[in-house]
Amino acid sequence: MTWTVPNILTVLRLFAAPGVAVMFLFFARPWADWFALVLFVTAAVTDWFDGYLAREWDQESKFGAMLDPIADKAMVVIALLVITGFSGMNPWILLPATIILFREVFVSGLREFLGNTAGLLKVTPLAKWKTTAQMVSLAVLFSTGIFEHHFAERIFGMDPGTLGAILSGELPDELNLNLLLWMQDVTFYAGVLLLWVAAALTALTGWDYFAKALPFLRDKTA
Score class of each variant (00 low, 15 high):
S137D: 04
S137M: 02
S137A: 15
S137E: 04
S137L: 01
S137P: 02
L138C: 02
L138F: 02
L138H: 00
L138D: 03
L138G: 00
L138P: 01
A139S: 09
V140G: 07
V140C: 05
V140W: 08
V140M: 03
V140Q: 10
L141K: 04
L141T: 06
L141A: 02
L141V: 04
L141S: 03
L141Q: 03
F142P: 03
F142Q: 00
F142C: 03
F142W: 07
F142T: 01
F142E: 03
S143M: 14
S143Q: 14
S143H: 11
T144A: 05
T144G: 02
T144E: 14
T144D: 09
T144I: 02
G145H: 08
G145Q: 06
G145Y: 12
G145R: 04
G145N: 11
G145M: 07
G145S: 14
G145F: 14
G145I: 06
G145K: 00
G145A: 10
I146P: 06
I146T: 13
I146Q: 10
I146H: 09
I146W: 13
F147I: 01
F147Q: 02
E148Q: 10
E148D: 12
E148R: 14
E148N: 05
H149Q: 12
H149F: 11
H149K: 03
H150I: 03
H150W: 05
H150T: 07
H150R: 09
F151A: 08
F151K: 07
F151M: 08
A152V: 00
A152F: 02
A152Y: 01
A152P: 00
A152R: 04
E153D: 15
E153T: 02
E153Y: 02
R154G: 00
R154Q: 08
R154D: 12
R154K: 14
I155G: 06
I155D: 10
F156D: 15
F156A: 13
F156K: 11
F156E: 15
G157I: 04
G157F: 07
G157Y: 05
G157V: 04
G157K: 07
M158E: 12
M158G: 09
D159A: 09
D159R: 06
D159Y: 05
D159G: 08
D159S: 10
P160Y: 10
P160M: 09
P160R: 05
P160L: 05
P160H: 11
P160W: 09
G161M: 05
G161Y: 07
G161F: 07
G161V: 09
G161D: 15
G161T: 11
G161C: 08
G161Q: 13
T162E: 15
T162M: 09
T162G: 01
T162L: 03
T162F: 02
T162A: 07
T162Q: 11
L163E: 15
L163K: 15
L163Q: 15
L163Y: 15
L163P: 14
L163R: 13
G164N: 15
G164Q: 13
A165P: 11
A165K: 13
A165Y: 10
I166F: 13
I166P: 14
L167K: 12
L167V: 04
L167S: 08
L167F: 08
L167A: 11
L167N: 07
S168K: 14
S168T: 08
S168M: 07
S168I: 01
S168R: 14
G169W: 07
G169M: 11
E170K: 07
E170A: 10
E170N: 04
E170Y: 00
E170C: 00
E170W: 00
